[in-house]
Amino acid sequence: MTTQRTDTPLVQLKDISISFGGIRAVDHVSLDLYPGEVVGLLGHNGAGKSTLIKILAGAYQKDGGEILINGEHAEINSPRDARDFNIETIYQTLALADNLDAASNLFLGRELVTGLGFVDDAKMENETAKIMARLNPNFKKLKEPVSALSGGQRQSVAIARAVYFNAKILIMDEPTAALGVHETQMVAELIQELKKQGLGIFLISHDTREMLELCDRVSVMKNGKLIGTERVEDVTEDDILSMIIMGKKPDKAA
């Protein structure tokens, strides 16, 4: 992985800023992400992690800075734009319409249609069954509204949505927050698998230990500013914690 740094990064966020009512939620933050790499974002609640990745996902519009995808300037003003760049996002809230079934949620905004332009429910249900068999073999409630599903099952719907459409860049905002031990392990395995396929993944989590296991690099944010980005093999858990809490880079960081 170390040798990849000469390639063009998959994503470059340059000097990104955004303010809400005079508060700088993200303050001149720069990050990059390479193919087959997992970059973790750490920080307190309100540090600006979710806001930053929502800019990449098209949910928020940045006030300043530039986004480059594969080295080229990318204009991302809506979730639809982000999708056109093969950016898929799993939101912390999961962003599911509770009254619709798994298939409708999976294909929301990208429904499969028949020749006449009608939504093809049978085909979507079939496709959903296929991907669910791969991601979560216990998943059986295809016909029921997702409000009837457990936390883990809902999470698999959200993950399936991101994976199904061949994402190149995956954003995962606390993907394991609502999950049990077994399901968390499944997500970890999935991340490893997607990594092997060459996806770039931004991962947000509060669990420092989990992050050190899953990520190649971690970036720490505090009060909207980027404190630093470190390779996981160069830092200890304590180093990361002090960055999160004190907002300072560890002395030994090169």
């Binding site: 809506s78 979730p79 962003a95 319409a97 619709l100 929301l108 905004g109 429904e111």
Partner: peptide, 24 residues
């Protein structure tokens, strides 16, 4: 029941934010 428009109506009703994030 058979058009995207109808599907989006239900989606917006179920979770407006999710609908927006889904590009609707």
């Amino acid at each position: 029941s058979r058009s995207r428009f109808g599907r989006y109506v239900y989606a917006i009703g179920g979770n407006p934010e999710a609908a927006e994030l889904a590009g609707i």
